[in-house]
């Protein structure tokens, strides 16, 4: 059988369609897994008493980073001493 340009194009279209279908199934499986993984976490154990705190912050410069998923996460400077949590080594 001769591999004409027309046959090559048709084969490429079928391959592209097949790849898209496989990716679709993979994403669907990942989504289902995410739901299952979320659902199996068992019930709670203890609670602690709550307290109240106020947060206040002012901003100056702002930065934006693009994660691997393509969504943006912005960070801006804030007043020192206004933090509600500390990110550090542990």
């Amino acid at each position: 059988m001769r591999f004409t340009p027309q046959r090559r194009d048709a084969a490429m279209r079928r391959l592209h369609h097949m790849t898209a279908s496989i990716l679709g199934v993979s994403f669907a499986a990942a989504a289902v897994f995410g739901v299952v993984a979320h659902a199996v976490i068992p019930g709670g154990t203890t609670t602690l008493s709550s307290a109240a705190t106020n947060s206040g912050s002012a901003s100056t410069s702002t930065s934006t980073t693009t994660s691997t998923s393509g969504t943006s996460t912005a960070a801006k400077s804030a007043s020192s001493g206004s933090a509600v949590a500390v990110s550090g080594g542990s």
Binding site: S57, S59, A83, A85
Partner: peptide
């Protein structure tokens, strides 16, 4: 104003 987070060597 967002979640204000201090960055330090030690959490």
């Amino acid at each position: 104003g967002g979640w204000a987070i201090q960055v330090s060597d030690d959490s």
